[in-house]
């Protein structure tokens, strides 16, 4: 498996240049529970990669390690050449502005309006930006997700799908180069789920972002992925595009695509 994996990574490297994110020999345990054991992954510019795995396989742990919410036990996570575990708080904050993160629970600030939710990161990073420019950026981000009319509403007044889109708009407002999606369609009905997936694909096309999508929703895997990584037993078990993995005869891979 490791050979096939390295061949695929090599092909991608040749086609797309240096990776924007590279994870090497990542280990993460919680006491005796070894979640990630020698996990490797590379994400390239403009690529949508889906990490597919069963519940509890360590997908969310993986992206929390990438964004620095959890500290890896061993290994390197290089994002734009910087090794995340080596960064201090200020350096980490700086690199986080280039990485968007869409939470499974949306994590909208429930005491703030939609406008304030979007302004919050902007006001703290782009201090010298005028109010007119901030307004324009907020309007653009809300137009991207088609929810400009909700600008003065509170999160509690929005439906689940709308909250997801507002959370996506908040992620986009700092113009990230990489977006991490943590189960973006979980808890949504199939129609709304498909809308969110389409939005993710549009965003990738419009802003040429790279995305790492954590999911076990096969609709999401099929529609949004350029490449899929199967996370199993703490390692990158299989790697390829949708067609390649659908035709994979390994029973552990096949179980996801049946």
């Amino acid at each position: 498996m490791a050979t096939a994996e390295s061949i695929l990574f090599k092909e991608h490297t040749e086609n797309q240049g240096a990776p924007v994110m590279s994870i090497c020999h990542l280990y993460k345990s919680f006491e005796d529970n070894h979640v990630l054991t020698d996990f490797n992954l590379e994400l390239f510019k403009g690529e949508n990669m889906v990490v597919l795995g069963k519940s509890g396989s360590g997908k969310s742990v993986l992206i929390k390690c990438i964004i620095g919410l959890l500290r890896a036990d061993e290994g390197t996570i290089k994002v734009f050449g910087e090794n995340i575990p080596d960064l201090n708080d200020e350096e980490l904050d700086k690199i986080r502005t280039k990485i968007g993160f869409l939470f499974q629970s949306n994590a909208l600030y429930d005491s703030m309006t939609v406008r304030q939710n979007l302004e919050f990161p902007l006001r703290r990073h782009w201090i010298k930006v005028s109010q007119q420019e901030v307004d324009a950026m907020v309007t653009n981000a809300l137009n991207d997700v088609g929810l400009i009319h909700t600008i003065d509403m509170m999160p509690e007044e929005l439906s689940g799908g709308m909250r997801k889109r507002i959370a996506l708009a908040r992620t986009l407002i700092l113009k990230p180069e990489i977006i991490l999606y943590d189960e973006p369609t979980t808890g949504l009905d199939p129609v709304t789920g498909r809308e969110i997936i389409r939005l993710m694909v549009e965003i990738k096309k419009k802003y040429n972002t790279s995305s790492l999508i954590i999911s076990h929703d096969m609709n999401c895997v099929r529609m949004a992925s350029d490449r899929i990584v199967v996370l199993l037993d703490g390692i990158c078990y299989a790697n390829g595009n949708y067609e390649e993995l659908t035709n994979n005869q390994d029973p552990k891979v096949k179980q996801f695509f049946e």
């Binding site: 980490l92 990161p121 990073h125």
Partner: peptide, 10 residues
């Protein structure tokens, strides 16, 4: 929500 603030670099 606190994690969301953290990951946005604030």
């Amino acid at each position: 929500q606190i994690d969301a603030m953290e990951v946005s670099g604030t």
